[in-house]
Simulated assay, not measured.
Amino acid sequence: MSAEDLPDELWIAKPLQAIKGRGAVSNLPGRFETQRIDAVDDGWTPFEDDTHITPRLTTSVTPELAKTILSRNQSPDLPFSVSLNPYRGCEHGCVYCFARPTHAYLGLSPGLDFETRLYTKTNAPELLRRELAHPHYQPSPIALGINTDAYQPVERGLRITRQCLEVLHECRHPVGIITKSALIERDLDLLKPMADANLVAAAVTITTLDHSISRTLEPRAASPTRRLQLVETLAKAGIPVLVSVAPVIPFITEQELENLMRAAANAGASAAGYTVLRLPWEVNPLFQEWLQTHFPERAQRVMNRIRDMRGGKDYDANFATRMRGEGLWADMIRQRFAKALKRYGLNKSGSFLHMDCSQFRRPLSIPAKTNHHGTGQLDIFG
Rank of each mutant, 00 (worst) to 15 (best):
L10I: 01
L277R: 10
S140N: 06
D149R: 08
Y87L: 10
T148W: 11
P55L: 11
E254K: 04
E282T: 15
R220T: 05
E289D: 10
A104M: 02
D210G: 01
N284C: 15
A13R: 14
L277D: 00
S270Q: 09
A13L: 14
H134K: 13
S109H: 13
A124T: 01
R220N: 14
A150H: 09
P86Y: 06
E297D: 13
N371F: 05
S181D: 02
I306E: 08
D50R: 12
G325W: 03
K192I: 06
V167K: 07
M332I: 14
F80G: 00
H169G: 06
V167A: 10
K67E: 15
R262K: 14
L144H: 02
N147P: 00
E282A: 15
H92C: 06
F47W: 09
A264E: 10
S109T: 11
S365T: 13
A221Y: 05
A320V: 03
H211P: 15
L209G: 01
P110T: 10
Q288Y: 04
C164L: 13
T62M: 03
Y119A: 05
T62I: 06
A197W: 06
V40H: 12
D308K: 14
Y96P: 00
A317P: 15
L108F: 01
L199T: 02
T293F: 03
N347W: 07
L364C: 02
L57I: 15
R156Y: 15
G376N: 14
I239Q: 07
L158E: 09
L364G: 02
L106P: 01
T45A: 11
T120C: 14
D41C: 12
L78G: 03
L128F: 08
A197K: 05
L6M: 10
D113T: 05
H103F: 03
T225I: 02
I249E: 15
V154H: 10
K342N: 08
A269W: 08
I252E: 04
G93I: 06
N123G: 03
K339Y: 11
A272K: 00
V200S: 07
A143N: 08
F287P: 04
L158A: 07
L158H: 09
A338N: 13
K20W: 07
F98Q: 05
G93N: 08
A39K: 08
V283E: 14
R36Y: 02
C171D: 00
A317V: 04
T205G: 04
L127D: 01
Y96R: 00
